[in-house]
Computed example of a mutant assay.
Amino acid sequence: MEDEYGKMTSEGDKFTIKNFKLESGETLPTATLNYRTYGALNEAKDNVIVVCHALTGNASLDGWWGGLLGEGKAFDTNKYLVVCCNILGSCYGSTSPTSIDPSTSLPYGITFPDVSVQDGVRLQLALLKEGIGASSIKSVIGGSFGGMQTLEFAVQTSSPHSPPNPPSSSPKPYVRSCIPIACGTRHTAWQIGISEVQRQCIYKDPKWLNGNFTPTDPPRAGLELARQIGMISYRTKDAYDNKFGRETKNGVEYGKYAHWEVKSYLEYQGEKFLERFDPITYIKLTEQMDSHDVGRGRGGCASALGQVKIPVCVMGIDSDVLYPIEQQREIYDLLGGGGGRKFIEIKSEAGHDGFLLEQEQVGRGIQEFLDLIE
Rank of each mutant, 00 (worst) to 15 (best):
61 L>C: 10
44 A>C: 01
40 A>R: 13
76 D>L: 09
72 G>C: 10
82 V>G: 10
30 T>G: 00
36 R>V: 12
60 S>G: 14
70 G>N: 05
30 T>D: 00
69 L>C: 08
65 W>N: 07
75 F>C: 10
20 F>V: 11
19 N>P: 00
51 V>D: 01
60 S>K: 12
47 N>I: 08
49 I>A: 09
70 G>D: 03
49 I>L: 15
21 K>T: 14
33 L>F: 04
70 G>Q: 00
14 K>H: 09
78 N>L: 01
81 L>Q: 12
40 A>H: 13
52 C>A: 14
44 A>D: 13
42 N>C: 09
24 S>G: 02
78 N>C: 01
73 K>Y: 06
77 T>P: 13
38 Y>H: 14
84 C>P: 00
27 T>D: 02
14 K>E: 07
4 E>I: 14
77 T>E: 04
51 V>K: 04
47 N>F: 02
26 E>T: 05
85 C>T: 15
53 H>T: 13
68 L>Y: 01
60 S>L: 10
4 E>L: 12
35 Y>L: 12
61 L>S: 11
23 E>C: 06
42 N>A: 05
28 L>H: 07
11 E>W: 03
38 Y>S: 11
37 T>D: 08
85 C>G: 07
68 L>F: 03
29 P>T: 11
16 T>D: 01
64 W>C: 08
55 L>C: 02
28 L>K: 07
67 G>I: 00
45 K>A: 11
28 L>N: 07
8 M>N: 02
17 I>C: 08
59 A>S: 15
73 K>P: 11
58 N>V: 03
40 A>V: 14
54 A>Q: 11
10 S>E: 01
25 G>F: 05
28 L>Q: 08
7 K>H: 12
4 E>G: 04
35 Y>P: 02
37 T>I: 14
15 F>Y: 15
34 N>V: 13
44 A>S: 15
58 N>C: 15
50 V>C: 14
18 K>F: 00
71 E>Q: 14
46 D>S: 13
56 T>V: 13
63 G>P: 00
20 F>H: 05
44 A>T: 15
42 N>W: 07
14 K>F: 02
22 L>K: 03
11 E>D: 15
21 K>I: 07
66 G>F: 07
27 T>R: 03
7 K>V: 15
36 R>Y: 03
16 T>L: 05
38 Y>W: 12
27 T>W: 03
9 T>C: 02
45 K>G: 07
25 G>E: 03
39 G>Y: 03
21 K>G: 00
34 N>E: 05
68 L>P: 05
27 T>E: 04
42 N>V: 10
76 D>A: 08
21 K>C: 02
70 G>Y: 05
56 T>G: 04
41 L>I: 14
16 T>Q: 09
59 A>R: 00
16 T>K: 01
49 I>S: 10
73 K>A: 06
74 A>N: 07
69 L>D: 08
35 Y>V: 13
65 W>S: 09
18 K>E: 09
17 I>E: 14
22 L>Q: 06
71 E>A: 15
37 T>N: 09
67 G>C: 07
50 V>E: 02
81 L>E: 12
58 N>M: 11
5 Y>T: 05
27 T>S: 01
